[in-house]
Simulated scan of single mutants.
Amino acid sequence: MKENPQETTHFGYQTVDKEKKVSLVGGVFDSVAAKYDVMNDVMSFGIHRLWKRQTIDSSAARKGQRILDLAGGTGDLAARFSRIVGPEGQVVLADINASMLEVGRTKLQDMGIVGNVDYVQANAEELPFPDDHFDVITIAFGLRNVTDKDKALRSMLRVLKPGGRLLVLEFSKPEQELLNQAYDFYSFNILPQMGGLIANDKESYQYLAESIRMHPDQETLKNLMQAAGFENVDYQNMTGGIVALHRGFKF
């Protein structure tokens, strides 16, 4: 019987049934959750902090706003947003993975951040929030792990207020071929070894490297956001295009 392409998707370089991808990705993040922050610093040489700072700056978040940090993991963005919106505002740290969400909850509570942050286990494709609810939505290094990106983007648009903005921070396509070659070598030869040494999990970081390569490039993601209904979509390359910050509005 001929395989129905609508029922399969990518898990790294593998082709898997769509219904299996969520559990496979879940297994990856269950495995890496405890060492996630350490590996982020090691993998990016700390530069991920600058990428996230630019995301915060581009959000134009203000006191009293309601913000969704989707696929928020260990809460780097949520912690900063909590301070910006203050006690009158609300931050929702949402992640599909319970292990990552628990690491984020513990981390923020240890930082003394309580009161204006809620923690919700949620699938980006079917967000459990009302229409027109959030002023800002961010998703940092999470969209590439979503099974149906089109459905997820439409779900984000639905819960975003008119005038609100979505910010997608994600690994992307380096602008220069020499940088692209060097990045490939690093991703497939060094990164999995780091994962094995630091997180005792070489396989998960092999998947993460593959998932980056399978993610849409800058222009393709821009087109996906526009097709989902976002307007004035643009993007900013950072670190030579290794990472791109996409921004779109709901009007």
Rank of each mutant, 00 (worst) to 15 (best):
L101G: 08
M1V: 07
A33F: 12
A79W: 04
V159A: 11
V168M: 12
L77P: 01
G142P: 04
L50W: 11
A209W: 01
G75F: 05
T138Y: 01
F251Q: 09
G26M: 05
G64K: 02
R105Q: 14
Y119L: 08
N237E: 10
G229Y: 02
L101K: 09
S44K: 09
G27M: 05
E19Y: 10
E170N: 11
D57H: 05
P192K: 02
E231W: 00
L101D: 10
R154H: 10
M1G: 06
D131Y: 04
G115Y: 14
T106E: 15
A199K: 03
A227F: 02
F129R: 05
E175D: 12
K222Q: 06
D148H: 13
A78F: 02
M156A: 10
F129W: 08
T239S: 15
G73T: 07
G26A: 07
Q65L: 01
S31L: 06
G142W: 05
F45G: 12
I212T: 07
G104P: 04
E19K: 13
D131H: 12
L191F: 09
V117M: 05
P162L: 06
G12N: 06
F134G: 02
T9F: 13
D95A: 06
L221Y: 07
A124D: 00
Y207E: 03
L167R: 06
